[in-house]
Amino acid sequence: MLKLKNIDAFFGKTQVLRHVTLHVEAGEIVSLIGANGSGKTTLLNVISGLHPSRNGSRVFLNVETRGMKPEKIVALGILQVPEAEKVFNPLTLLENLELGAYLRRPDRVKLAEEMEKVFQLFPILRERKDQPAGTLSGGERQMLALGKALMGQPKLLMLDEPSLGLAPTVVSEIFHIVRSLNDRGITILLVEQNAKEALRISHRTYVLDTGRIVLSGSGQELLNNDEVKRAFLGKDYRGKWER
């Protein structure tokens, strides 16, 4: 579905992505883990067309997306829920959801139907539908961000640290939702700092280190990989690094 080949990206003269090659197949949950500053968010922004890439190719559903404007990439079906600025704070929930469908411009009846589906998935949002999004709690905001992205009818949904800063119960709820979205046929590319949870729910995982893909494999394989345990699963595996 998505094939990245030899992607390089720079911030000024600093190279932040080095020959990144990865693929995501339809129906998968693929996660991307790595330390802070390893280039995970930049990689998502490259895919979304917010950050320019040099060299290599970015093919989505047999279409080369290099040089495309972000709105064209959204129109192809790639939607990103970023870690910061996920929703439009001064706008109401309903307005946020309506704009989620901006490119398709469904008529009033269709729009109401689609919003109803989002409300069924996230009942809490219905109670707050006329509030500005900025008044929501972190968990609710994440749900609204997911709902807004769903209004765009994504084929590939990219989530940047969806669990960041949320209470543990909310985190498990969010992961549960991610899984159920995947069951409905949405392909998911997940960037997570919560490596354990990410490895558990994803079919495959890539490990990014200073802009390079250093490891990849199924979630189970990586959960048992000593390097991953040492680097990401830290304190639960004290024995591994205090040898």
Binding site: P70, Q80, V81, E85, K86, L91, L103
Partner: peptide, 10 residues
């Protein structure tokens, strides 16, 4: 409200 988020919304 957010230029970045607007871009990602299409």
């Amino acid at each position: 409200a957010s230029r970045r988020s607007a871009m990602l919304t299409g």
